[in-house]
Structure formats: C-alpha cells, structure tokens
Design a protein around this nucleic acid. Structure first.
Lengths: 359, 359
DNA sequence: TTGTACGCGTTATCAG
DNA sequence: CTGATAACGCGTACAA
C-alpha cells in the first residue's frame, strides 16, 4: 500500500495525498477529509526511505557516546541523559539512533560516523559529552553536519548545552571548606572531559581563595578507585579533612573508605559530592552535593539540534542550565534548625542524619 | 556524489559500482580495484535511503523500552543491556534505534511502533523486557514483523533469550535458607514482568520445599521502597530472618533497613540479592546474589533478531543463558576456610557454586 | 563479466 | 486548489 493506492481509493491524485500527509494547506477540506478517512481506514503509513530519499531529510538524529563514556555507562548520569534525549525526540517527532564508539577499535567510531553522515542516515547528532580533544568534532564541523554537544566546547565554536561546572565546583568546595577544614583533596573524573577540567578548576580556585592546600586525584568516576585513593589519602601522613568527589558515585567510595578507617563524617572529614541523579540514595547517605539537571541537558540538546537542522545558518547557541547546591550533612551541620529537625528524627526531606549507610 | 558519478570516474557502469559495493562476486578484479580506488579517493558512501528503498531493508533495528522500564532505567541492569545490544549491532553491522514508551501516554508507544513498522524504518525490534501482558506483542506477531524478546514469553510462541529466573531464584532461596532460618520474605519486582513472576515462583517453591513460611512483597525494583518495606517487616511482629531481594538495588535497601534497626547481618538476618551487575558494589557490601549476564542478553537478542530477519520462516528459537550463584557473606558464613579469609580481611574472591550452565 | 532498463515510494516543480 | 511528471539514488532481473 502506497500513496498511489490511497489516491485511487480517495479519488484524488498522489500529489494531493502527499499534501494531506504533510499538512500542506493547499488542499480543500473536502479532499483532505476523504483522504484522511482512507488513510485511517487502511492504517497507512508512508514509507520512510522513499520519504527521505525525496526530501533529503530522515528525521533521525544520532546520540554519539564516546568510548570513555562506556565506563560512565554504569554511572547513573548517562542513562538519564539518554532519557532526556528521548523526551526531546518525542516532542520534536524525531527518532534517536545510538552510536557508540568501540572500546577496542577507536577508528571504528569515525568510520561509523562517517558512514552515517555521508550515507545521510542522520539529520544531525548529539555528542553526549564534550571532550577536551576535539579532533573528532572537526570532521563534523568541516562537513557542515549539524551537531550539538552536551558540555561546552573550548577550542571550537559550536552549539552546546552545559552546566557551569566551574562555578558549581567552586560553590561546592566553598561549602565543603566552611567548617574549619585544613586540607582539601579532590577526586576528579578523567582529564579527557571538559567537565572534569572545569570542576577541577573550580575546586582549585575555591581552595586557593580560602587559603587551604589542595590536591587533585584522578579517580575516573569509579567508586572502587575512589575508595582506594581515599583510603590511601586518609591513612597517609597529612591526611585531608575535606574531600570533594566530582560524582556521587565517587563520594560513596570515599564514605566507604572513611568507615573502614573509622573516620567520622562530618566531624573529622567533610565529603562533597556531585550530580544528585539519585536523590534517594544521596539523601539516605546524607551526601551534600551539586544537583545537575541531567535529563534536561539531554532534552535541550535535542531541541537545539532540531533548531540547528532547520536553520544551519543560524549562529551557534550556547545554553547554560542551572545547578543547585544541595546541603545535607556530609560537610557538617549548619544551623540549629537543621540540628533540631535531625534530633527530632522527623521525615527529612533533603536532610539526613549522620547515619551514613553505605550505598 | 552517487553511484553514477563513481561509475563515470571509474569508467564502468553504475551496476558494476553497485556490485562492488555489495560484494557481488560477478565483477572482474580489474574493475573491482578501479572502482574501489575511486570510492576510497572520494570517500564515497552510498545513500542509505535509496538503498533501503530499493532493497527493502534498512539495516536498522529498534530497541523497545517499555514504560515500566523507565524506572528500571536508573537500575544498572538496563544500561548494560543497551550496551550488549550495541555490541551485537556492531558485530552484525546494524544500527540501533531507541524506542521508548511514553510514561504519560501509553498509546503513544503503539503509534510510534506502528509508524516504525508500517513505515519500514526498521527491519525488526528487540523488546527489552518480557511483559506478562502480551497485547503489545500481538501487533508485531500479526504483522509478521521480526522481533525478539529479552525474557521468555508465556502466552505466545516467540524467539527470546532469557535466564532461568525460576531456577536461579530457587537456588538463591535455598542458599538463603541454609542457615537455620525460620521465616522468609521476598521483595519482588512488579508483577507485570515475567521475570518477576518467575523469581517469585522459584522463591515460593524453595521456601515451601524447605518447609519455611514465606511472604512476597512488591518493592518495584526501588531501593527506597525496599528499605521501607524491610523496616516495616523487620520491626513488626514475627519478623522474617531471611529476605530475598529480586535485585541488588533492593538488597541494598534491606541492608540499610537492617542497619537502621541494629539488626546484624548475617547473624540475625540473611539477605540475598539478584543481578550482580556491579560486582564491586555487591562485593563491598558482601551481598550474596545471582549473577546475570546482562550484556550477553542484549548481544544474543540482536544475534537472534538478525537471524530472524534473514530467515523469517525459521522456527522460533529460545536461548537460555547461564546464571551463577555468587556466595558472599550476607546469608551466613559457610565454612572455616571462608570465615578465616574473612577474619583475616584478605581480598575475598567470590565463591561460586551451583554454576547453572543451561543454554 | 558487463551494461541496460525498470522499479522502489516519496517530494517537488510546474502548468493548469 | 489539483494533477502530471520529473527527480531522489540505488538494486536487480534481463539481455548482451
């Protein structure tokens, strides 16, 4: 069943049917109604391939997941971003294709992308995370292929959506150090991500402004590595009494380490997290952190991409999404009101008692 | 740039170029080499839409995520399955499209799928989880549209890949009850999933065979709900001394509850989990559980689908993937060797017994 | 082994 | 507002 068949049944030409399907206003109500009836009756759906062959549009966009993110895949952030992208696609009536770099063969990714681009399978792509190394992005840019990055770009002009990681990390660190801490450490994500660098930046600036010595350690967004590094730091000489983990996952690792070593949180050690993707968990552990609108990041990225596909000549847009400092108890108790609520053991919204159940 | 252009440059006809691209053996080496050179030189990639319009194949498959799974999305199982599907696609040179049911509008999903099917965007779909209610699947079946389910089907004949949830749950429960327990409870996933029902089945059978009273409670794969239910059970009269959580996430909720109530694990309470997607976490908490090959489930599903697309007439295939009982410490200490290792605080490998190789 | 010619199902252009 | 008709880029019988 195709346009021609529908046209015959409705007693009109193929063109008219096409116009009805594409909501072209130049159709009489009479014809439109007849055609719509036939379409509904036969549950007709136009052939996508023929459509995109003729229109040069596929209404499919890709979500490119860098190999590094495949670790992050087990991190809660990523699935939520996917969900956000799907939200956006649903709103814009687009389809979402998943493109993942192979962990083994780094070239496979570029070949895949190239095939997608030049084969015109996709109208555009969302890059799931902004990499410090933008050689991959260059290909897209030179081909004038529409793309949007989740995370700001540093070396090229592009359309992106991001949170202000530097500022957020600054505020987080400021809060972390607000209880007479002497020495700070940060467990950071991989330096290949712009977001990691920004968070490190914010941390360093805040520590410096507070006049507190600080060190940074790459824990690769891994709970276990965070745990191990924390154990090593906390049991070594001149141990830090404040640790900023660049993700909640890593913060949990720190808490596990503290427990193992019998270090009391927040009295002897302040811990700050990042993400708050699963508030139930972080709340249960009392982890103070920065809340990041992961789902909204995905949604907005798709929005921006859709706009960019519609008008590739439009200047690049940059969107900052807000974050929120969530104060719980892992950095210290902050006022009487809170302490009272805690003592009363009432249903604590964002406030948790010092009972740090390990994840 | 298209086939015609390449043909001209190579001094052959369009057909020959097409043959080269599709690895048709009926091409002279001389022509093949010339064509391949031109293709490489111009970095040519055939237009996907034109290809699928002519060949009636898209080389794209869909991964259908039921609305219920959107909660599961934050559960580690799901992202890993996606990864597995991508592995499979990479091997078979397919693309993966994500189809998610809307959480709000249940009909939107069917419309989406219908559009995909009848619009011939997809060669087939993988259904991410087997639902007890198969009305959605009927549509696919009646349309003779190739599909594979992750999770066995109960009311229809279909191709699927699954683990033996019932048997695994039976063994898990058996192990859980192997330390003089008096009363068992299970925190189950939603009854809309076949896997939930199977696990409940296995649990009930094992408890019954052991002559131990047992209750089942729906905790919806949610850590918080599991925690709350566990608190209520454990602080009520006639509290259970053995709890089987149908996911590790829920097991963590139980452990949190036990901690809060000062109940010692495993002495006063045995806890059993399921999944072992993140062995680092479960190992850190000492959770005994069933290990499920999530990534492999995704990969195999794609394999099966690919085969089914190639030969739709082939009888349905059913694949059982093996699980593994992972014994840690949350159900009790099992022998001196292990107890010693634990006391010595050495790195405990996991001890696996009853290795269930089914397949 | 190679080339010709037609068909795949739409969209888009243009004349009416 | 409507209907021919020409692309769109490729696969594939069929003929050579």
């Amino acid at each position: 069943m195709n346009l021609e068949d529908i046209a015959k049944l409705a007693g009109v030409s193929r063109s008219t049917v096409s116009r009805v399907i594409n909501n072209d206003p130049r159709v009489s109500d009479r014809a439109r109604i007849r055609v719509q009836a036939v379409i509904a009756e036969h549950n007709f759906h136009p052939n996508a391939a023929a459509r995109s062959l003729a229109s040069r549009r596929t209404r499919v966009i890709g979500l490119v997941i860098p190999a590094i993110a495949s670790k992050i895949f087990s991190d809660p952030w990523f699935p939520i971003v996917i969900q956000g992208c799907m939200d956006g696609c649903q709103e814009q009536d687009l389809s979402l294709m998943l493109l993942m770099e192979s962990e083994t063969d780094p070239h496979a990714a570029n070949r895949l992308i190239e095939r997608m681009l030049r084969g015109r399978q996709l109208d555009g792509v969302v890059l799931a995370t902004s990499l410090a190394d933008t050689t991959g992005t260059r290909l897209l840019q030179e081909s004038d292929f529409p793309f949007v990055v989740i995370g700001r770009t540093t070396t090229i002009d592009a359309t992106w959506v991001d949170i202000d990681n530097r500022h957020a990390a600054y505020l987080a660190t400021q809060h972390l150090l607000s209880h007479n801490r002497r020495k700070a450490a940060m467990l950071a994500g991989p330096a290949t991500l712009v977001s990691s660098l920004d968070r490190i930046d914010g941390f360093r600036a805040a520590a410096s402004d507070a006049g507190i010595p600080a060190t940074v350690h790459d824990a690769d967004y891994d709970q276990r590595r965070a745990h191990d590094i924390a154990v090593s730091l906390l049991s070594g000489p001149d141990a830090p009494d404040a640790i900023f983990a660049a993700s909640d996952t890593m913060a949990v690792g720190v808490i596990q380490a503290a427990r193992r070593l019998g270090i009391e949180i927040p009295r002897s050690l302040g811990v700050m997290g990042f993400d708050d993707i699963r508030p139930d968990r972080t709340a249960a552990l009392g982890i103070s952190n920065i809340r990041q609108p992961a789902r909204e990041e995905g949604r907005r990225a798709v929005d921006l991409l859709h706009a960019r596909i519609a008008d590739p000549a439009h200047p690049h847009q940059q969107v900052w999404l807000p974050t929120e400092l969530i104060v719980r108890t892992s950095c210290g108790y902050h006022n009487n009101t809170e302490a009272e609520r805690l003592d009363a053991g009432v249903e604590r919204k964002e406030v948790a008692i010092g009972n740090l159940d390990v994840d």
